[in-house]
Amino acid sequence: MTTLSIQLVNLFAAFLLLLAFAMLAQRRVLTLVNLYALQGLTVVAATTVVAHMTHQEHLYYSAILTLLLKVILIPWVLHRLIKRLNVRWDIETLINIPSTMLVGIVLVVFAFNLALPISKLSTSVVPGTLGIALACILLSFMMMITRSKALPQVIGFLAMENALFFAATSATYGMPMVVELGIALDVLVGVFILGVFLFQISEQFESLDIRNLENLKEE
């Protein structure tokens, strides 16, 4: 448990927060997917460092799993989706971006205050990261709320899962392997199902604007 590894985990946590804000501020769908892949990579790096630091071998496996799934496979699927659905253009956000980020800062402060008592109880050597992970979850949620197109919402959902995973690794040195595998499978299946859904939506409405779904409610 060297100070260097602790600092590295902190650094990756900061990276995650930066990426969460970058996703919040990003208008282009393609860049959003790339940012998501980058986020996955950061989580992989953080997990590897934690694994090295705590000598827990199963964390290496989850790192490899994350790398395959969230850095390579899912972004690839998403890229294909974008190509097939032809939704590469910019997306307008529901609220303007500076205001969104301002709310984001409030969320960060809130998340940290929330995490403070928990991280005091935690045995982890990097207590600050729990707050960041929580903040990332809230920010991804926020991103889902402020977007009007379906694809960014899917990405927001995936980013949230990334943040959850990071929370688990940094605060409690990872979940048991079975749980992790289960979640990974869930995410994978979820992405495919969502992909199918997106196809259906775009065929039905000839657009991915989820505001169209408002028409489905009973009159």
Partner: peptide, 9 residues
């Protein structure tokens, strides 16, 4: 956010 992270971490 940079200043915030400094204080938080």
């Amino acid at each position: 956010i940079g200043m915030l992270t400094h204080i938080l971490l």
